[in-house]
Amino acid sequence: MTAEEILNSLKAKFGDAVVESKLDAPQPWIVINPARMKDIALFLRDDPATQFDYMMCLSGVDYNNGKLGIVYHLFSMVHRHKIVLKAFCTKEQPHIQSVSSVWATANWHEREAFDMYGIVLDEHPDLRRILLPYDWEGHPLRKDYKVPEFYNGMKVPY
């Protein structure tokens, strides 16, 4: 299936959850409403025409204008096609629905997105920090992050 066919089948089934898309990019992407991520992911995984059974990557992004987002790279082992999904949220309302019940690998990827960007994944079974210590304050990969002076008595900057 081409990206346009995937977009059309998504629009036919979900209509308003598909916000925008850019199909002439080197990796064509589709923007999804963050509160509907799980339904769309379930459809993309289970529909026989798309069958995206492999989530290659899930990355958090800070777009430097108050907008945060998550980018999903999906691949189908059966049909050998790829698509990129994006979901945006703001720093004041950083909520995106979790897809860890659809693809098991998303569990740790979403924990990393939470750890580094502060994006809260709703319905995630185990949302806690994965890379940084549990009592760390702040989300480092945000563009406005300031390095703390001390952590547990140890001086952090050089």
Partner: peptide, 9 residues
């Protein structure tokens, strides 16, 4: 040393 927020220097 410069940008490592998580590294003990």
């Amino acid at each position: 040393w410069e940008h490592g927020y998580h590294v003990l220097k």
